[in-house]
């Protein structure tokens, strides 16, 4: 079988949960080698053990094929998204595979299947498990309800993205805080491949990512604060009516409770709204500061 001419990059995230990255990457190499003439592997090392890195380098020297592999060593422990962004920035492929985790529960032929799906006209192919954890499901339900992108998000195992989609993603924002959300909202065709199983090992720093994503890529925060403000206003009006009626009845002492209620409730509301504003401001500040949003210590060619 003749191999594909398109150049493929595969970005693989590694951290201290990665005990045997050479297993996954070894499988990945054999799969890519079978189907593609030219490909590169970019491992993003976010605090993986020295042992894991050593095994990875040994893998390169063992493999007969001329694999091009780079390891990006992150300076300090950074979020999965930041690391993947670093890997994507280094990649040069026409198509780029994003493996957020080296703990694969799926069959490797899915990697090739994702590429075939891309050739049929999808700029983004998400490969997803049919099982989602309860917290993920809850997050995506809120996310999808409040986001206005054409595609609904769900838990995924890995992604394949075309170069033009990556270029568009980088065009729209300086820093991709949550890649999936950006990909889904770019107006390019996205398709899904579902396999039976679940994904593990993506539990870390999820809460921050979830909060950031909801604020950045949905109008959840805005709607929440708006509703809160409305409720508060209604409560204030009700309190005001009550105060007026008490005053008319001629027993003003009992209005003290109402005043306190309005004050405390109102102030709580104001602070809640402030919290939202602060969240937005901090995000705006971070996104407009123009930096690449991650710190790299070194790039090794293996």
């Amino acid at each position: 079988m003749s191999r594909e001419q398109n150049f493929i990059s595969a970005v693989v995230y590694l951290d201290n949960m990665s005990l045997a990255p050479e297993k996954f990457i070894g499988g990945l190499i054999s799969c890519l080698d079978e189907h593609f003439m030219h490909y590169e592997i970019i491992a993003v090392n976010n605090g993986a053990s020295d042992e894991a890195c050593r095994k990875l380098k040994a893998l390169k020297s063992e493999s007969a094929s001329s694999v091009h592999m780079s390891i990006i060593n992150m300076s300090v422990h950074q979020s999965r998204e930041q690391c993947m962004n670093a890997g994507l920035d280094l990649s040069a492929g026409d198509y780029v595979y994003e493996f957020d985790s080296d703990d694969a529960e799926y069959d490797l032929p899915l990697i090739w299947k994702a590429y075939q799906s891309a050739l049929q006209g999808s700029d983004i192919v998400e490969v997803c498990p049919d099982h989602e954890s309860r917290s993920s499901r809850a997050f995506y339900r809120i996310f999808n309800a409040y986001s206005n992108s054409a595609y609904a998000l769900r838990t995924n195992a890995f992604t394949l993205i075309s170069r033009r989609a990556l270029n568009r993603a980088h065009d729209s924002r300086a820093t991709l805080s949550y890649r999936k959300a950006v990909y889904a909202s770019m107006g390019l065709k996205m398709s899904e491949i579902v396999f039976p199983g679940k994904v593990r090992g993506k539990e870390r720093d999820r809460f921050t990512l979830a909060a950031d994503s909801l604020a950045l890529y949905t109008d959840f925060g805005y709607k929440f604060s708006l509703r809160f403000a409305l409720t508060m206003m209604l409560a204030t009006i009700a309190g005001m009516l009550y105060t007026v009626s008490v005053w008319l009845a001629g027993s003003p002492v009992s209005g003290w409770t109402t005043t306190m209620f309005v004050l405390t409730f109102g102030l709580t509301g104001i602070f809640a709204a402030f919290a939202m504003v602060m969240k937005y401001l901090s995000l705006v500040l971070r996104m407009s500061s123009g930096g690449q949003g991650y710190l790299v210590e070194s790039i090794e060619k293996v």
């Binding site: 003439m37 590169e40 040069a92 492929g93 026409d94």
Partner: peptide, 15 residues
């Protein structure tokens, strides 16, 4: 001498 890295260098330059 090693096989040329032309496909890789071309890809990077074209990026």
């Amino acid at each position: 001498k090693p096989e040329s890295a032309w496909p890789y260098m071309r890809q990077l330059a074209e990026k």
